[in-house]
Amino acid sequence: MTTTGTDVTGPLPDDWTLPRLGRVNTEWFTSGKLLVQTCNQCGTRQHPPEEICHHCGSMDLGHTELGPNGTVHSFTVAHYAVNRALADAVPYAVVLVTLDDDPSIRIIGNVLDADPGEVHIGMPVTATWVERTDENGSVQLIQWVSR
């Protein structure tokens, strides 16, 4: 595993589940940038990306790069390992971050440089990317560090 912008790799095992790339999510999971899907016809943003604009119905969709700063909107600390592979990872915090550039966009992640007990609602964070590779190729997972 290699990381961008941080030396910390997060709470989950190195071989934990990765996102499956598909028709609309490849930029999100491979660009290493905060590219939010944006309608080329009407300018509406939507996340997660879809195959059609929910506002005007266009299928001509592009992206807007937003700033990396965000705020923890909610979180949970998982204490029960729902899979045996996570037995050594618990307790770990999962956060829901709103982007300061557009608080209507919320993103799930982990705060790489904080203990579970330090994570709280209102915590300022900034995006970073963690490169992960398996037999299907590489992805850039958006993650968070405190700021």
């Binding site: 709470p11 989950l12 990765l18 998982a78 770990y92 999962v94 993103i107």
Partner: peptide, 8 residues
């Protein structure tokens, strides 16, 4: 895809 990689 947006949740499982983060342990949710």
């Amino acid at each position: 895809a947006y949740t499982s990689p983060y342990g949710m």
